[in-house]
Design a protein around this nucleic acid. Structure first.
Length: 451
RNA sequence: UCCUCGGUAGCUCAAUCGGCAGAGCAUCCGGCUGUUAACCGGACGGUUGAUGGUUCGAGUCCAUCCCGAGGAGCCA
């Protein structure tokens, strides 16, 4: 068997082949030449490892080929796996002592150097930028967050029901929507699947949808995209308190799983893990009344908003929080915090008013720590048909398009609740990123959709 | 939509008071047996975002526009 062809192995599995002859196929991330020695850093999608080409160990042709390889050239290298503390890469610690190599394509000069670049340049080369180690780590974590979210829901009796992306009207009647031509009739890209989820719970009990949503808002901040992915669970026979329990269980599960399964990626991102390790139930709960009092106490004392370089602005009871308010509130806790019972006037029409205190509703937002802002928003839904009709009219919305939605309250209405989780903000928080644009392979931002 | 900052070599940036357009990296050539964004020597590299104006002279000052970044509002 001495003439057998060496196996093609993944870099993440190199360790298992120590001392053996293997082939790795991938792309050249970086190269350092040193006379009769060439260090090749090879990526294959699963990781990155160093391949060492000694002139005396390979044919003259192969050594010359190694010298002529450019960054991002595709290649196969065959050699013996050796443990070496000096070997860079991820997982790292193992390198390939090359015996032969086969360039597949020698790449043209690569525009992205392994050093500092500006945001504009990198975004224009997003199709190439995603090859970089940091982006690789982020997008792998994103994929695993998605997997963990779905896994937890699937294991807890939720049925995945996909909701439409093309919709006839605004679901909440608030935010700006992208309009398209639906065979002569105006239609809109969905900003939420919630109303359809509410129909689905009467068939399946617990459901979730998970897909892209669209907001045509002129938002240009580190927390906003025009197209983002939202996970929306909806649960029958569930009130506000139970809704918060579901959220803290789900989010804690995801984070603890990422800490274990993506330790390598988090290390690559140099993420401070102490914040994430604390994310376990229960999360603190803060009533809107108390939040307002906290903010105004801080405003009076002239406290600074962390990372904002301005003092906490005062707030009137009944107003929604601005970004500085949310950032200040979240900074007062060492884990995500629920803020519940917002004023009804600043929330959507379908949220259940608090019995005996209709000026507030049974709504809840989850604020992530470290300034990442609102990552979920949800509520107990109004279940009484007459109250819902009144709420729709009070918000100045037409009744006719909501007839099917009102049907849900006519045929076996029950207490139910749901929430939406912004995937990109969650990824940014877990990865410790400055901006959500790096949390999705091809972000859609204000006036920016190429590539 | 509003506020603030920015646009100079492929990339990251410098250029004093308005006075010769510069450096590092990348690329190419040569050297080096343990490099980690290697190092040493050499070469190549410019419509200073666009248009108009002020001036003997504009990267620099003025006006308008284009593009980008951060923030506000709104939201996940």
């Amino acid at each position: 068997m001495t003439d057998s062809v060496p196996p093609i192995v993944s870099i993440e599995n190199l360790k298992a082949y120590e001392g053996e002859l293997v082939t790795v196929q991938g792309w050249l991330y970086a190269k350092t030449g040193k006379g009769r020695l060439q260090f090749l850093q090879v990526r294959d999608g699963s990781g990155l490892c160093q391949a060492v080409v000694f002139k005396k160990n390979v044919s003259p042709e192969d050594f010359q080929a190694a010298k002529e390889l450019t960054r991002e050239s595709s290649l196969r290298v065959t050699g013996v796996v050796k443990a070496d503390e000096r070997a860079p890469g991820f997982p790292g610690g193992y390198e390939i002592d090359v015996r032969s190599l086969e360039p597949i394509q020698v790449a043209e000069p690569y525009p992205i150097a392994p050093k500092e670049h500006g945001v504009e340049f990198l975004m224009k080369h997003r199709h190439l930028w995603i090859r970089a180690p940091r982006q690789w780590a982020i997008l792998r974590i994103r994929a695993n967050i998605t997997r963990a979210l779905r896994y937890w829901l699937d294991e807890h009796g939720f049925v995945n029901v996909d909701t439409p992306i093309l919709t006839p009207a605004a679901a909440e009647g608030t935010t700006t929507l992208f309009e398209i031509d639906y065979h002569g009739e105006p239609a809109y890209l969905a900003q939420t699947g919630q109303l359809y989820n509410e129909a689905a719970i009467f068939a399946f009990g617990r459901v979730y949808c998970f897909g892209p949503t669209f907001r045509a808002e002129k938002s240009k901040t580190r927390r906003h995209l025009q197209e983002f992915w939202m996970l929306e669970p909806e649960i029958a026979f569930c009130d506000l308190e139970e809704l918060m329990e579901v959220q803290e269980q789900l989010i804690s599960y995801v984070i603890q799983r990422i800490l274990v399964e993506n330790a390598l990626e988090l290390r690559l991102l140099e993420r401070d893990l102490t914040h994430l390790e604390r994310v376990r139930p229960p999360f603190p709960r803060l009533h809107y009344d108390d939040a307002v009092a906290m903010i105004n106490r801080a405003a009076e004392a002239g406290e600074k908003v962390p990372g904002y370089d301005e003092t906490v602005p005062p707030i009137q009871w009944g107003d929604d929080f601005g970004s500085p308010h949310e950032t200040y509130l979240a900074a007062q806790f060492d884990r995500p915090v629920f803020v519940h019972h917002y004023p009804s006037q600043v929330k959507a029409f379908y949220m259940e008013p608090e019995p005996g205190r209709p000026e507030v509703c049974r709504s809840v937002d989850l604020l992530a720590p470290e300034g990442y802002g609102e990552i979920t928003g949800g509520s107990e839904r109004m279940s009484d048909p007459e109250k819902l009709v009144a709420a729709i009219q009070k918000h100045g919305l037409p009744l006719e398009p909501y007839q099917w939605y009102l049907d849900l309250r006519r045929y076996g209405s029950v207490v139910h609740s749901g929430f939406g989780l912004g995937l990109e903000r969650t990824v940014a928080w877990i990865c410790g990123l400055e901006h959500v644009r790096e949390t999705i392979a091809f972000p859609r931002m204000l006036h920016y959709m190429r590539p």
